[in-house]
Design a binder for these strands. Sequence first.
DNA 1: GATGAATGAGTATTCATTCAT
DNA 2: AATGAATGAATACTCATTCAT
Lengths: 180, 180, 180, 180
Amino acid sequence: MDKKEQLIEIATKLFAERGFENTPLSVVCETANVSKGLISHHFKSKNGLLREIFLRTTRLIVEINSIDKTNQSPREQLVELLESFFLQLEADKMFFQFNLNMMVQPATRDVLNDLIKERSTFILEATKSIFDKIDTTDSLVKSHMFIAELDGIALNYLGIYEDFPLNQIKELIIKKYTQR
Amino acid sequence: MDKKEQLIEIATKLFAERGFENTPLSVVCETANVSKGLISHHFKSKNGLLREIFLRTTRLIVEINSIDKTNQSPREQLVELLESFFLQLEADKMFFQFNLNMMVQPATRDVLNDLIKERSTFILEATKSIFDKIDTTDSLVKSHMFIAELDGIALNYLGIYEDFPLNQIKELIIKKYTQR
Amino acid sequence: MDKKEQLIEIATKLFAERGFENTPLSVVCETANVSKGLISHHFKSKNGLLREIFLRTTRLIVEINSIDKTNQSPREQLVELLESFFLQLEADKMFFQFNLNMMVQPATRDVLNDLIKERSTFILEATKSIFDKIDTTDSLVKSHMFIAELDGIALNYLGIYEDFPLNQIKELIIKKYTQR
Amino acid sequence: MDKKEQLIEIATKLFAERGFENTPLSVVCETANVSKGLISHHFKSKNGLLREIFLRTTRLIVEINSIDKTNQSPREQLVELLESFFLQLEADKMFFQFNLNMMVQPATRDVLNDLIKERSTFILEATKSIFDKIDTTDSLVKSHMFIAELDGIALNYLGIYEDFPLNQIKELIIKKYTQR
DNA sequence: GATGAATGAGTATTCATTCAT
DNA sequence: AATGAATGAATACTCATTCAT
């Protein structure tokens, strides 16, 4: 088993669960059964490790969106996007927890600034390219609205309301975006 | 000059700007021109100070929502709520930054858990009471959607997109909620 | 109820239970329902309070030993002294705990040095005056032995062995000192 | 040069001289020419360091008592034990100072509770095994008396009387325990 | 006599990072 | 590639003391 990969996997999980600032490298290393020196060896620093993790997450997002969807109508694409969003939100809370965390915290924002910009630009453009196919009017604003809505749902589902009615919300949203 | 109030004011500002974890008490005290011991004296601990701040913020939210609005139609209330939300989002970014921060970060969440629950329950009920007057069908889910949308907008405006089209989003949303 | 007396009583108890160094004045004041400023007002400082307490304890010891015992034989006096020692050791553990504590700890020793000397000189002389009446040979050494024995018993009973056979020890000692 | 051993040695000395509570780690580290972090690294905490020291002291006591003494009569063993006690009491005051300190102070007692119990049980049994060979009647009580006597002597010699007649006491005691 | 806000020096502890092996 | 001893700056917290009221 590759110690480097092991390290990344464990660190991702712990950073998501406990927050970056609140997760000492000592805990990461103990959990991953790895010596402290190894982090500096592979990633130079704690921030280096964070950037590597964030980068990989972005790569994942890009890959998913790069699947060819030319055989789908734009509305079908939107629905599929929503379906996969709600599916993953339930299945991999950690993933969203981690990303929300990184965005909101000033300290991590500073470290990841360029990577966050890169990723959010990609997401905005990917979304807009779908909306453009439906109607170019206000497509940028609508894309922003769309993204904000999903982020807000993730935020409220993960962090605020214990009995957030995720499924009903999902239905409501899908209905909204499939109506002409 | 009340040193306790001074302390709270400065701490609120600094926690919002730099994050709670990332703001040492030494900085808070120096900025507020106050000795370290005073925090212990008034709030017992850094967490105690945080709880006091969060509590006051909640009290503010409750006060604003307690203003009598019986002379307005529910849709008018909704629009007013949206107007004041967007107004404040632009005017007092710190306020939103601080609150998002507290919600998302695991460490602060643990400290504030009970207070967060209290506040979010209040907000949900206040929102639902308006939606109920329009149409009781799905009023709870719609309230959740409404709150999530606004949170998402705050999140994207403050933390992700530098050129977030706040005004256009505002218009779009108000239009959406004034349509029958 | 006199706040000063209240303060002394509570402080004695707490210092005995938790040790002097380990008992913050804040705890003393809260327990005694008294403000912090009052200690400085009455005793100048924490050390001042300690000295007052130690002084009172000495005064108690002196008083007990000042009772006229001219109608008793020296051996009777010795037995009575032993009886009262074992009686009090069981009844007022705190008293012995406190005094042992003060003697052994370097920090408190420094504060109480003169008072400790005064008291221990008194005790030695009071004991020697009894032994002298029995036999002046080695009376000083025997007095030291006698005191050391009792201190050792207190130490082992209070601080080391949970099932210290206090009563059997008492009988053994009394037998020893009543034998010709 | 082993920094860990250096640390233990210096700390033992300082804790004995100044008391545990009254010896800041800063002083220990400066004296030992070692960084503060090293204590956390090797012993986890100040209490951890204390436990390590106490443990080693116990180990020393056990080792000394484990020397084969089958070629000595029980009374010879008792005398040898007394001789070595008085010898060490004069030579290594620190050792006794430290141990008395730990026993008497509530704060350190709590930290060392299990280790103190272990050690005192061992000492009691080692002593009793000698007394048993002389006479099994009351051997437990006599052992307790014996230990208490020595502890009391150490206490009075080290902590109370400046001109404690140690040598005369020694002779008196040895005479007592060699008499049939 | 009595209060309690305010101070500030002091202390243990945490933790990312370095470096020799 | 991997270890872990060692560092030292940073940080929250403690607590006796002071002083205006």
